[in-house]
Write a protein that binds this DNA or RNA. Structure first.
Lengths: 98, 98
DNA sequence: ACTAACGGTAAGTGATGACTAACGCACTTC
DNA sequence: GAAGTGCGTTAGTCATCACTTACCGTTAGT
């Protein structure tokens, strides 16, 4: 969750969501060096958002559905509560006692 | 989106999702000072995640459904693509040529 | 009007973290 | 086996940011 706070990391995440890719391919289309991409991928992997697959000398990274699913659950949970509270707030005309 | 990167800010966000609150009430139950809470609320407000409502001398903050809705949309969009790509990856038996 | 309570703002400090350069390791191909 | 490619890791630097202290504006009560 906090792993997506950095813009570069979010960019990497979005590119992987579009299509799995290797480290070098990602770094080639990004304004940062390859080690930087590698470090971001490690953070994303530890957060459970991506998974790596060895492919010879290369390593292919792709989105891990479980991680993004956990985020969805977290968001939906708060969404329901927030929506209920907001609805209650709008419908209350003007509470004088508070 | 990046506004939820900080743990303290996420904590404030979750408390507001549970129930709207004033700045002082939030700071009283948090390990940080009141100005810190005020700064976090400003970031959350600029991100469109919370909205403030003047109530006399106090200001009540609550979750803004639009902000959390935008996050949901962003997440769902990437979820669909990632799930399709992952499914395609799993179903591919084992590509010998590569 | 004066006082007290509530909250936003400014300035300054300390720590977290994103980045690059240099190095080492695993795998492949000649 | 030797050279080359693709990645991860380490050390070090620099910027970003979260936090506190002090101050000022605003609103409610006496």
């Amino acid at each position: 969750m906090a792993a997506l706070g950095d813009p570069t990391r979010r960019e990497i995440f979005e590119r992987l969501a579009a299509a799995p890719s290797s480290v070098g391919a990602l770094a080639a289309n990004l304004p940062v060096s390859r080690p930087a991409v590698s470090q971001h991928l490690r953070v994303l992997k530890e957060a459970g958002l991506v998974s790596e697959t060895p492919d010879g000398a290369r390593r292919v990274y792709r989105i891990d559905p479980r991680g993004i699913g956990a985020m969805r659950d977290w968001l939906d949970q708060h969404w329901d509560r927030a929506l209920a509270a907001f609805k209650d707030f709008v419908e209350t005309p003007e509470d004088p006692a508070e």
